[in-house]
Nucleic acid binder design. Structure first.
Lengths: 175, 175
DNA sequence: CTCGACATGTAAGCAGTTACATGATTGT
DNA sequence: ACAATCATGTAACTGCTTACATGTCGAG
């Protein structure tokens, strides 16, 4: 793959769990070449454009495999700015709170639609039992992304119901 | 609150969605004081120990409230290293894959237990309708963290079932 | 008296983004 | 011809972690 290809891949399903900008990718690729973990070769794209392609070296493959089996000492924080804002709910004007939740609901619903489209595009009605190993990794990542968004939306809806009830009880923002 | 207090708070529920080390917190607090968004005062803790306390200024409160209503242009990536590893499933020896998933299941189950304990400690059987606004933000964040972990565990179990079936079919890692 | 928690800081360095900068290719 | 996408890079800066460093307080 090329740096550009990697940049594009981060716009697909895996981008839900890890991503980087092209400016970082090009720098890292050079670093990996200098460490002999990957090697570079040129592929002509058109007449003049030299597309720089990279492939993993045996040394890189070894490094990758040991990384894949590594257990992180601590589970790292999956940051979520929206949750951080909700933590400070008491400082949000009560009439804005519902709007904020509905806005997030809309954005998350759009993301879910995109992911489901990706899913039916790549897997359709296929049974994961019959997928080859390469596809299986992508299948798991996509189902993970979809279930994450679905769960997020369920939580948003439950929270919206609570907020609505509190407004109906006229007690919202007054306690 | 003091820098130490903030560090401690990041070990509680909100730490599931945002966190920082004390080394960063102390630097940021000084920056915020110089921007006049917070102000500092001393509280004696014991005889000699001067605990540096901070409170938000009116200017800071204004800034906070405008930040709380800010909509991020793009939803940022909620990074998850485990999902990244799963993406490269084809490079993991098939006998290790199950172990990897079970390990993550164990860790996530422990996290879920911790969160549920926090929940019953702070909210018990309370109805969120009757919570005061300050508590409500914490309630939402904790329920969000809990539902996120529950959903993660469901996905792990589903994936484990698929992997087990593939092993039983003797087709795992061979396609 | 000693250990664990409380409490605060600095420095080096890595990870990652934003902005700047350039040029080729393809489809309309 | 023009625009969108393909394609690659650098520089400045911010965010964040790791490691270093020091000292107090309370309980047993």
């Amino acid at each position: 793959m090329s740096g550009y290809d990697i940049t594009s891949e981060f716009k697909q399903a895996i981008g839900q769990f890890w991503s980087a900008k092209h400016s970082q990718i090009y720098v890292e690729l050079k670093k990996l070449v200098s460490e002999e973990l990957i090697s570079q070769y040129i592929q002509m794209a058109g007449v003049k454009l030299e597309k720089k392609m990279y492939r993993i070296t045996p040394k890189g493959k070894k490094e990758l495999q040991s990384w894949l089996l590594k257990i992180d000492e601590q589970l790292e924080t999956e940051k979520d700015v929206f949750a951080l804002r909700v933590y400070f709910l008491k400082d949000i004007p009560s009439e804005e709170v519902l709007w904020l939740f509905f806005n997030q609901l809309k954005r998350k619903s759009e993301k879910l639609s995109f992911l489901k489209e990706q899913f039916s595009l790549h897997f359709g009605e296929k049974d994961p039992i019959n997928l080859d190993v390469e596809e299986l990794g992508h299948y798991f990542v996509l189902t993970k992304a979809i279930s994450r968004e679905e769960n997020y939306i369920i939580w948003l809806n439950k929270s919206i119901e609570i907020i609505k009830k509190r407004i109906a009880d006229k007690s919202f923002g007054e306690n």
